[in-house]
């Protein structure tokens, strides 16, 4: 039995302890905003918050999640994600959209740590999130725009 919280709700699941958090979120809890892209922590499409820090759900076995607080894109709240999503919408960042939950999660985590990041800091923080459509020009711009909004 694994006990953990997801988006503010307690869960007790009797499940193979090797099961990656990604597949628990998707197959068991039907939180499908978190995506599968590679399964080896190379693309960031599965990024969630674990105890407030970004984490790749595809390589996080559920046994490691015991007692933790998980937040997926569906459960995110607060000024940073609101600013990020507003900036994403304002300049139409997504193309196919598959990676964008992970991009939004990583961008939100970045702005929580560094309110006004430079291009270099953005490159560093976002380098783990692959976008095959290469929407990177807009991701970079949208993070700057979100930072400007947050600074008010």
């Amino acid at each position: 039995m694994t006990t953990f919280r997801v988006n503010g709700q307690d869960h007790d699941l009797d499940i193979d302890p090797d099961t990656p958090l990604l597949w628990v979120l998707r197959d068991e809890l039907r939180l499908t905003g978190t995506k599968f892209g590679c399964g080896i922590a190379q693309c960031g499409a599965c990024t969630v918050m674990m105890n407030g820090m970004p984490r790749r759900a595809c390589v996080t076995p559920i046994s490691m999640v015991e007692g933790s607080e998980i937040t997926t894109i569906e459960g995110m709240d607060g000024p940073e994600i609101s600013a990020v999503q507003a900036a994403w919408e304002a300049i139409d960042v997504p193309q196919c959209g598959w990676c964008q939950s992970g991009q939004v999660m990583s961008a939100t985590a970045l702005l929580q740590q560094i309110p006004n990041p430079t291009d270099e800091e953005i490159n560093h923080a976002m380098a783990g999130n692959v976008c095959r459509c290469a929407t990177y020009v807009r991701i970079r711009q949208a993070i700057h725009d979100a930072a400007a909004t947050l600074e008010g």
């Binding site: 499908t32 905003g33 999503q85 919408e89 960042v93 997504p94 959209g97």
Partner: peptide, 21 residues
């Protein structure tokens, strides 16, 4: 003008094949 699929693709609600159960 705003793209019609941007919002759903920015908040995780867009439904793709793998999301069908």
């Amino acid at each position: 003008r705003p793209k019609l699929d941007t919002v759903a693709k920015s908040n995780g609600s867009a439904q793709f094949t793998m999301d069908v159960y």
